[in-house]
Structure formats: C-alpha cells, structure tokens
Design a protein around this nucleic acid. Sequence first.
DNA 1: GACATCACG
DNA 2: GACGTACGTGATGTCC
Length: 933
Amino acid sequence: MTTTQFGKGCHLHLIDGSAFIFRAYHALPPLTRKSDGLPIGAVSGFCNMLQKYVEDNAGPDAPTHVAVIFDKGSHTFRNDLYDLYKANREAMPEDLRPQMPLTREATKAFNIACKELEGYEADDIIATLAVQAREAGGRVTIVSSDKDLMQLVGGGVEMLDAMKNKRIDRDGVIEKFGVGPERVVDVQALAGDSVDNVPGAPGIGVKTAALLINEYGDLETLLDRAEEIKQPKRRQTLIDKRDQIELSKKLVQLDEETPLDFTLDDLEVKDPEPDTLLSFLAEMEFRTLTKRIADKLGAEAPVIADAPAPADEPEAEAIPFDASKYECVRYAAALQKWIDQTYERGWVAVDTETTGLNEMIANLVGISLCVEPGEACYIPLTHRESATDDLFGSDALAEGQMPLDEALNLLKPMLEDPSILKIGQNMKYDAKIFRRYGVDVAPIDDTMLMSYAMHGGEHGHGMDTLSERYLSHTPIPIKPLLGSGKSAITFDKVPIDEATAYAAEDADITLRLWKLFKPQLHQVQVTTVYETLERPLVPVLAEMEMHGIKVDRDVLSRMSNAFAQKMAGLEAEIHELAGENFNVGSPAQLGEILFEKMGLEGGKKGKTGKYSTGADILEDLATEHELPRRVLDWRQLSKLKSTYTDALQTHINPDTGRVHTSYSITGANTGRLASTDPNLQNIPVRTEEGRRIREAFIAEPGNVLVSLDYSQIELRILAHIADIPTLKQAFADGLDIHAMTASEMFDVPLDEMTPDIRRQAKAINFGVIYGISGFGLARNLRIPRADAQGFIDRYFERFPGIRRYMDDTIAFAKENGYVQTLFGRKIHTPEINAKGPHAGFSRRAAINAPIQGTAADVIRRAMVRMPEAINGLSAKMLLQVHDELLFEVAEDSVEQVIGVARDIMEGAADPAVKLDIKLVADAGQGANWAEAH
DNA sequence: GACATCACG
DNA sequence: GACGTACGTGATGTCC
C-alpha cells in the first residue's frame, strides 16, 4: 500500500460514531447474544450501518481517508464553562453501556481508524480534523446529521446524512439556519438548544436569531447595538442576557485545536482483513451480516457455534394435494389409529367444522386431523341427512358417523395432553368450540398467528391467502358446498364425502403451513413476539369471550323507544325546513337538499361526485341554518339506536344472557386487537347521551364492574422512544402533559394556562403520534393552515427529538420495509417507497405504528399475566378496549383486584423493556360500565 | 359490495 | 414543487 501525504486530491470522511450508535440503539429492539445474553442490539445496528456506509462509498468518489470519531468521558471543557451543559441528558441506558467498547472494536474490525480523546466531544475532534484537511487542500465529508457540525461546512467541507443519503452543503446549512456556516454559532448562541441544555436567549428561536444576525452581521455587533432593536421584549432580552448568550456561543463553538496524537495520514483508507472482520462478527453471532460480508469479501463465513440446525427443506411440491387420499373416519378403531400416529410424532393439525361462524352458538359437526403433509382425515360427527336426499327437511343424523361422545372421549386425552402440540389455523375458534364440549385444547400452535408475527402488514392471514401465497395451492372453496343467500345450508347438511375432502384439506394445509413457518419464525427473529405476545393470548381471549358481559335488555329497549320518538320529531322538523319529504338517512338526498335546493356553500367532494355531508361540514353550516343542526341531532340518535341500543339486544346470547364479542388477534396491523360481533370497543362515551348506553353494561348481583385504563400510554411511549427529556421529566413529575406542552410551546406559565391553549397543545400532542401534518392539524383545530404549521415548527424546535424520531423511523422503514415496536413486533410498510399521495399515508402510518404497536404490546403482556394474578380472587377479565381492561369482581374483592391488576398493568413492560417513563393505570368501579369508566 | 358516515382508542 | 393528508379499527344504512 502506498502512503501519500494528505493534500490536494485527498478526500477525508469523518463519521460521527456516537450518532451511529444512538440511531442503532433506538432503531432496534433489545437484541441479545444468544449464547450468553450480552446485549448487542446497538452493536448489530452499528455494524450494519458501517457495512452500508462502506458499500455506499465504494464508487469513483470514494474517500482516501476515513475515521470514526467517538465521544469519550462525560466531562468536557464545556462543563467547566457551564455546569448545566447537557445536564438534562438521560443517563446512558444500562443495556447500551456494555456495548460502547464493542462499537470501537467493531470499527477496528472493519479496519477503519477509530479515534476519541478524553475530555473532548467527538464534534471537536471532527472540527480539528476537518480544518486540518481543508487547510491541506483536501475535501472533507462529515458523515452526520448533527446540526452542531454545520458550522464546519464550506471550503470543501460537506456533511452527509447517511440515513437519508442526503448531502448538506452551504445551501443546506442556510436552509436549516437561515445563515451561512460561519454564522451558525451566532444563531445557535441566540436560539439555544434544549437537547444540549444550551440556554441561549429566552424567547428567541432559530428563525428570529437568523433574522437578527442577518440584519446586524454578527452576534457581537448585534449585542453591541442591541438598544436599536424595535421590539421591546427582544431588546431587553438581548441586553439582560448578554452574558448568557456569550456563554452559549462558547458552548456551541467547536474547538478546532484539540491536541491530537495522530495525523491525517494515519487515517488512510485500508481494506478490511477478512479474518479479523469475520471473526469479530462471528463472535458477536451476527449470522446474516457475517454471511453477507463473507460473500462480499469472497471469503468463507466462519461457523457460528450456536447456529440453529438447518431447517428441513420444505418439500411442498413433492407431495401434491390429493383430496381422494383423505380418510373419512367412521369407527373408533380407525380414530384410534390416527391418535396413535399423533403420539408417535408429538404434534397434530386440528380443524373443526361447525354449523356457523359464531363459536358461542355454532355446534360441532366434524373434526379433521393431519399428521403429515397429504395424510389427513375427517371425522364426521353430526352431519344430517342431506337436503337433497330428504325433501321434507328431516334433521335425522346421517349414517356412518361415530357418536359425538365416543369420538370426544377418545380425542380428549390427546387434545389435552401437554406433550402433544395441537396446530390450528385461528385456534381460538376451535378451542372455544372444544371448550363448549368439555375439552381444553393445549398446548397449541397457530399458523395464523405465526403469519401475523412474520408478515404483519404485508397481507391478510386467512387460510386461503396463506395457502395460495406459501403453498401455491388454492383451497377447495366453501361457497359451492354451502350455497349463498336464502338457500344457504349449514355444514351439517353437506354430504359427508364432500365434507371430508374440504375439511381434511384444511387440516392438511394447516400442517404444511406450520412446517414451513415454524423454522422461519426464528430466522425472522419473531419467535419471542409469537411466543409472548400472540400465542398466549389465545386462551386468555377465549376465556374472556366465553364469559361475556351482562347487558340489560330492558335498559336498551327503553332507550331505543326514546330515540325512535325523538327521531320522528326531528324528521318532521327537517322535512318542514326542507319543504319536502326525503330520506334523512341518505347523504345523497341530503346533499341535494342542502346544496342545490337551498343553495348553500360547500361543493362536491367525493370520488363518486356526490356532495359530502359529513359532520364537520354540517357543523359549519349549522352556524347559519337550522336544518343541518337537526340532521346532526338526528344522525346521532340514528347511530346510537341502530348500532347500539337495537343491535346490542340481538347479540344477547339466549343461553348465557350475556353479550360475547369476538376479538381478532390479527385484525389490526399495529398489534391492537379488533372486536367484532358485536364490536365492544366502540361503545359510546364521548357524549352524555351516548355514554348512557354504558349503563346497560352491568355486573351480576353481588359484583361490580372495575375498569383500569392506562393514562396517556401512547404519549409516554413516545417520550421514551423519541427520548424527549422534557416530556419524560413531566411524566415523572406527574404533570398535566398537555398543559406542560402548551406552556413549553407558547411560553405560558402553567398557572396562567387557559383551557383553549391547553386544548390546542393536546391536539398537537395527538397529532405528533399520528404523524402530524399542517393540514391535518389545521382541520382538527379549525385554524389557518399557516398557523398550524407554525405550531408544528415550534413543537419541533422545542422537542427536536421528535423530529429525529420521525426521520429515523421513516428512514428505517424505507430501508427495511418494516418498523418495529419496543418488544420486537414487526409492522411491515410495503407502500413506504411508493410514489404519489400514497407515500404520505404510508409515512404517517410508519410513524404511528411503533407507538400504537408498543402500547398494544404492553396491554397484551398485561392480559397474558392477568389470569394467574387474579386467580382465586373471584374476578373475571371481561373486555379490552386498547388501553382499558374491564373486570367483573365480587364486591368484597374490589380493592384487592384493583391493586393486583394495577400492578400487572403498570409493570407490564418488565422485564423485557426498561421504560424511561412509568406506566400509570387509573381505576374506577361501579354497578355499570358508565360508572366504572 | 362500494361508499359515506360515525362510534371508539 | 405539487400532491393530498392526521393513526388504528367495525357497524350501519344507502344505493347500484
């Protein structure tokens, strides 16, 4: 290798190592080394980023010299200047600390110069090297997006944001700070920095600072001529706080003369030594990366000791689907053979056929089993004489079936045997059916949940989808068997031979999917997610759903009648006001009346060319006209009546007298549950009239309903994930978080807070969780868009970590095609790289998913632990409403249950994730849900 | 069955 | 630089 003197034609890359580590740590779930549990998530991310950097910078513009620069020690000369410098920084997370030396080792393993200096920040070393290189006539690229480094840009020095692959030159700096690089420190001195706790001038942000600097030339001139400033408050601040501003400048000014014990020539680019690099990666047990880099280097990947055994190659093609091979089991001896086969293997795929989709009502018709691909059977149990054979609709049992009791007696020991794994597709359904026949199926695996853990966000997880996608096989459709509409029959009327082909195939498909998915779970690193957040929920939800909640039919019925009366009155008034009779429930007809007959403002909107008559539009019109208000009132009543007071009555189970919802584990992409038939997660609460519906949800005599809900869980999680010291502190102090935000943003002291300012801050807080946009906030707050954008800008100024979180999250999604929760749940974002308006949706969803998803994981963990915790307390968990759990509790156990449940909920993240904020659950109780909530 | 609307977190 | 836009759900009634 030739050694050249650093000079003209040379190109130095300076990588901000701490930024890499920080990003890697927060972008990845807490991975540990498999062999000994050493935390290595950040090291893993760091190595991936280094590798990506190397690959991205191999072209003609490749650097000649490169170094990764780290911070060393927590005390620097800046702390001597100002003891509060970076004082609001959180302590380094426990699981990150041991990874710090490993990142240095990693850098050296890549054969990249690794530099740090006690008592100096990485930024100072970078500054010194950049200046040296510039003076020697070379080019410099600083690989970082840290704005503190922007003062170095210019004269051959550029910055590169590695995540966004965006270069920042002089113009980029001007765009960010409103001034050139040479004046950046002046602007920073005035604006201050809440992240580093640089005080600056109170009330002056970047925008104002740039304005002032541009007007007066530089900071010193500005301060000398501060008396000339017109705005009295600003003038006084600059005069009073001169010392503080000058101190701030010293804090943000980088030291370009750090005493280095090496020269630029020592930083010459060197190729990695394959042995050194690969053995380091292998030692860390990074399987994928080791292999990838070995391929790149043309070397052999070292064997990683603990590597999982190579998965059996799935031979789906080798065994074609053949319905004619499925056995119809009609006798005990034949069934026993299948059970024996199950015991030989230790697992079996199981599927039930029933008379309907509602597990609380449907009856068992038959059971299918599968032990090997292609080897499946169907056990018909309660098929009736088929309709075509018996025109008179007899419901006599068809011939050639085992008695139900006999079959269940044979199967029950196997289905309950802890050594036999029962595999299903949506096992909650089958488990509930079996439970009603006295069989507790356990343990289980569920291919639907496996797919959800691995492919959440990519596609649905129904059997048809999975079979087509992963087995290239289209299952026998159920439609031709059952028919549709009025002539539809239930499965017990399907002829047994047809039923055998259909039902056995389902078990066959399930088993094949399981064989395919099981090893993949590990490869995709979602085994823990599947085993702690998905699978254990099945028995918990099954129990909740089967227990149901008591609903007072009379209360609902009376409300329905009252609503009907009021609606009739409103309808008459509406017709009167409109001057004609029309269907108030038809948005199309209402649009005609409002916008054509009455000639009101508000144009066409929908894709279908119809007038839009949503609540917000009518709300605006209601200030001028009576009719829209009446329609709004009518609609509210109509909604309450049709969706709740009427519909809920039909969901009261005649046997139990209770309402049994069904939770979909895979329904929501983020990890939330979805509730259907009926949806008990959207029972009204926001309006007084609606909330009264909750009075119909009651406890049995001697019991009360107890509700515990997480307080601000998503904002707390945001504060943790985005690492916002101010927000975390506010939660620690138990402050009103929206008022705190308002105070911080609008410079209003907490004791002068008005409800309106707080309301605006609250909307912004929620907006942030949803991936805020100026337009959306403007519409929500009904304020001009520019004002909303101003709020958002200000928010990002006050909480710069939020912006960083959003940028990092989107960058991660674009690179990986998914985002992750703190617990490792992957939410795929297949549209994230799409062009056009779709991209906006996708970006906001990506920003929201880790927050909403982490909250969903937290309550899932609480639910999984809850049954054991409240065991013996005569309490039942009934419902989950995203951040709330509702229990039915014996009166004398209430306080005890609240204590236990609260502990479980507040500690639900432990020990997997150490949150910087505490989780808080508020409790309520009462005779009905309205009182308990 | 698509669409609009509106209930919840 | 324009484009549309808050995130995640389910149930209902119209209308084709």
